[in-house]
Design a protein around this nucleic acid. Structure first.
Lengths: 346, 346
DNA sequence: TTGTATGCGTTATCAA
DNA sequence: TTGATAACGCATACAA
C-alpha cells in the first residue's frame, strides 16, 4: 500500500491535517513545521492520492475531451494530434490532466460524456469539433456544466464559450485570392455539412462570389466526407459538367490531396489547368505535389486556448462567456496560378 | 449536489449497501428489490460517482496513455489517431476510460506518468511507442505497475507484455520484394534511432541484403527524424553519392512522402528511376503520387490488443507476460517497378 | 436476502 | 499555529 498522509503525519509527529496544510502550502503553518513535514514526505516518497483529494475537494483537476467517432475516417486527420498537443500544453501548464472519450456511434459518445460528467470524472469538457444540432451541447448547457467548443457553436453562440477561427472570412479571403488571380469559375469542395466549419467556409466562399458579382453555380459546390474517397468522388462529379471550374476551394488539406490525385489520374495539371486552395495547412499541404496553397488556422493554438479558457471557467464559475478567435493566414504555395485563356473542357 | 446512493436508498426504502449491490448486480439481491431499486435510480436520475467508487474499491477503471512529446513532429503522424481509435475501442468494450499524459520534454512526460501512477489516477499504463533505454520502462518495472508497450521493448523483453508487429521480418520481406524485382542497390531511410521500431526495420533490411549475398553499403543507410525535413535531407544525402540506389526502403509513409517530394523536385521519377516501399500504410500512402507500396501494420489492432491485454493484466495480476504479434501485409501499389538497365547517375 | 458499520485518503470545519 | 473530527460517495466485512 502506498504511503499516505497519515504515515507522513506519524513520522513527522504532527496531525494529518497539518500535513494536508503543508501540501496546500497554507500560510497558517510555520515554516519550521513545513520544512520538517516536507523532509519526511521526501524520505517516505509520499505522493498525494488524486482520487481521495478529488472526493474530498469535489474537484478532479481533469478535463474531458470528446473526440469524434474513433472509426470515422475524420479521426485520421492530423488535425487531432495537433490540437491535442495544444490542449495538453494548456492543461499541463495549469496542472490539469486530460481524460478522453470517444466511441463508434453518436450514442456511444453521448453516453461516454454523460458518464464522464455525471460520474464526476472531470471538471469540464472540451468538444473537439462543432457539429450541427449537437445533442451534447444541449446536454451540457442543460446541466450547466463547464464546457468549451472548438469551432463555432451551431446555435446559442452567445452562451457558449468557444475557440474558433473566422472561417467565414478565411474562406472569403481565400476565394478572393483566387478571384484576384483572374479565376471566375471557382468550385467548392466541402466535407460533411454536419460540421459547422464546413458550412462557414461554404458561406464565405459564396459571399466572395456574390461580392464579385459572379453567379453561384450549384453544380460547382460539392459535398462529401472529408478525405480519401471524398476528393475522388468530388472530382468525378465536377467532371460530369460541361464547363469545368478553373479553380477550387477545398475545405481540408487531406481532401485536397485526394483531389490532386484524382486530377493527376485524369491528366489535368495543377496549377496549369486548375488552381487549388485548401484549409488547415497541416504537414501534407507542404508535402503535396504541387505544394498546396492552404489557410493556416493555427490548430495548436485552438487547442491551447480552449484548454486555458475552460480552466478559467472551471476555476471561476462567474467567468463570462467568451469567444476567442484565433488568427489565420493564407500560405501561398504553387498550387495556384492565373487561369489559362482556354476553358478546359473534356 | 448530485443524487447519491443514499438518496436512492431512502427513496427505495432500502439500505445504501443494498443499492450498491444492485449496481454491482450482486446475485445475493432478490430480483424484486433489484427492480425496485433500479426503478428509483432511473426516476431520480442516479449516476454512480466514479471518484468515490475508485476510492472505495481502489481501482479507477482508467488506463493511462503516454504519448510522445506533444511538440514533437512525430505526434503529427496519423499513426496516433489511429492507434488511439483502437485503444479507445478496446478500453470501451471493457468499460475502461482513457487518461492521457504527454509533455514538451522527456522530463515532463516522466513526471506526468509518475504523478498519474503514484497519484492513483489509473490502473495501468500503455506506452504508445517503444524507445531505446526508456526510463519509464525501468520505473514501471520497479514499481511493479501494470503496463503494456506498443512496439518491442528495448530490453527485458520477456518481462514486458507488449503488442508489436514483427518489424524485423516485415522489413526483410519488403526488402526481398525489392530484390525480387531485380533491385540490387537498395537504400534505407529510417527515422530516429531512439525508436526501437527503426532499429528493427533496419536490421530486417540488412538481413535481407546479407541473405541475398549483397554488400551492406554504409552510405545507403540514412537516419533522420521521421517526416518532413527527414525525407528531403535524406534524399540530398543520397544524391551526394556517385551511385544512386535504384530502390529505397523508407521507414514511414509520411517520410516517404517527403522523399517523393524531394525526388520530384530533382526530376527523378518514381518508380521509373527509383522504387519506393514504405511502412504503416496510412491514408497518405494511398493518396501519394504515385501511390506508395507500403507495409500495412494494422495500427488499429495494435491499439485494440494493447488495451485488451492491459485490462487482462489489471484484472488478473497473475496473468503471464505476453507478446502479441499483429500481422502485417505488404500492400503493393505503383511506387515499385523493375530497375531500368542504366544506372542512374547525376 | 438485507442492514450496519467501517474504511478508502483527502480536505475542511471546528476547537484548542 | 496546530489538532480532532466530520464529511466526500461508495464498497464490503460482518451481522442479522
Amino acid at each position: 500500500m502506498a504511503v499516505t498522509i497519515k504515515d507522513v503525519a506519524k513520522a513527522a509527529n504532527v496531525a494529518p491535517s497539518t500535513v494536508s496544510r503543508v501540501i496546500a502550502n497554507s500560510p497558517r503553518i510555520s515554516e519550521k513545521t513545513k520544512e520538517k513535514v516536507r523532509e519526511v514526505m521526501k524520505q517516505l516518497g509520499y505522493h498525494p492520492n488524486f482520487i481521495a483529494r478529488s472526493l474530498a475537494s469535489q474537484a478532479t483537476r481533469a478535463i474531458g475531451l470528446v473526440l469524434p467517432s474513433s472509426t470515422d475516417i475524420v479521426s485520421q486527420n492530423p488535425f487531432f494530434p495537433i490540437v491535442l498537443g495544444g490542449l495538453s500544453d494548456g492543461a499541463h501548464s495549469k496542472q490539469y490532466a486530460l481524460h478522453m472519450t470517444t466511441g463508434k456511434t453518436e450514442e456511444e459518445i453521448f453516453e461516454g460524456v454523460v458518464s464522464m460528467v455525471q460520474g464526476g470524472r472531470v471538471d469540464g469538457v472540451i468538444l473537439l469539433s462543432s457539429r450541427v444540432e449537437d445533442p451534447l451541447v444541449s446536454y451540457l448547457l442543460e446541466q450547466d456544466f463547464p464546457f468549451v467548443v472548438i469551432g463555432k457553436p451551431f446555435k446559442n453562440v452567445e452562451q457558449i464559450t468557444h475557440v474558433d477561427n473566422d472561417n467565414f472570412k478565411a474562406a472569403k479571403d481565400a476565394t478572393n485570392y483566387l478571384l484576384s488571380l483572374g479565376h471566375e469559375q471557382i468550385g467548392f469542395i466541402g466535407g460533411n455539412l454536419n460540421l459547422v466549419v464546413t458550412v462557414e467556409r461554404l458561406l464565405g466562399y459564396e459571399k466572395a462570389l456574390r461580392d464579385a458579382g459572379l453567379p453561384l453555380i450549384n453544380e460547382y459546390v460539392i459535398h462529401d466526407e472529408f478525405l480519401r474517397e471524398g476528393g475522388r468522388e468530388a472530382v468525378q462529379a465536377l467532371l460530369a459538367l460541361k464547363k469545368l471550374p478553373t479553380a477550387m476551394l477545398v475545405a481540408d488539406d487531406l481532401m485536397a490531396l485526394g483531389v490532386l490525385n484524382a486530377l493527376d489520374e485524369l491528366g489535368i495539371s495543377v496549377p496549369e489547368d486548375v488552381s487549388i486552395v485548401s484549409f488547415n495547412n497541416v504537414l501534407v499541404a507542404e508535402m503535396a505535389r504541387p505544394p498546396l496553397t492552404s489557410v493556416d488556422i493555427n490548430i495548436f493554438d485552438l487547442g491551447y486556448e480552449a484548454a486555458k479558457s475552460l480552466i478559467q471557467k472551471i476555476e471561476n464559475p462567474k467567468e463570462p462567456t467568451k469567444r476567442i478567435i484565433i488568427p489565420y493566414e493564407l500560405v501561398k504555395r504553387s498550387s495556384c496560378a492565373k487561369p489559362t485563356k482556354k476553358t478546359l473542357t473534356l
